[in-house]
């Protein structure tokens, strides 16, 4: 890649920051060039973010339909899955999976709710109140 080929198309997922890329200058020496972003990266980052958002939206629809728990919604909102949530709380994965069921989640103790809220970086009130669609 030559310095003139370093992508400067802009990449919304970079939030306005630039990243350093190694490219060949006019003298043939390789060095860093600040890149405003490449559309390719924007596409793949958006794809990953959209997939997480899709899971969270599906969980929220499930909450309103009574088939999913708020824990599942907040888990995907925090970009986690059941195995990462289990590791973050120090609970067994099978317990986390059980707690994802709406009937079981509704009966969770305050201690467990506090533990989940802390791992997700939210407070208990947020974890237990249903957001609108």
């Amino acid at each position: 890649m030559d310095a003139g080929e370093v992508p400067q198309e802009g990449n919304a997922t970079l939030g306005g920051r630039r990243k350093a890329m190694y490219a060949r200058g006019a003298d043939g020496r390789l060095g860093t060039v600040a890149s405003a972003g490449w559309e390719v990266e924007e596409i793949v980052t958006r794809q990953a973010v959209d997939e997480l958002d899709r899971r969270a939206a599906a969980a929220l629809a499930g909450v309103h339909a009574g088939t999913a728990s708020l824990l599942e919604y907040h888990m995907y909102r925090a970009r986690m899955d059941d195995s990462l949530l289990a590791q973050s709380t120090g609970l067994w994965r099978w317990r986390v999976r059980r707690h994802l069921r709406p009937a079981v989640f509704a009966r969770l103790s305050t201690a467990l709710l506090t533990r989940y809220a802390a791992a997700l970086g939210i407070d208990v009130a947020t974890l237990t109140s249903t957001p609108p669609r």
């Binding site: 890649m1 890329m21 390789l30 390719v40 990266e41 793949v44 980052t45 794809q47």
Partner: peptide
């Protein structure tokens, strides 16, 4: 999703482009 993941690991996670080859 899988091929997008490959590209993210190659280009995005601070590689300097081309999966650190540059």
């Amino acid at each position: 999703l899988f091929i997008g993941h490959l590209v993210r690991m190659q280009e995005e996670i601070g590689t300097g482009g081309g999966g650190f080859r540059f």
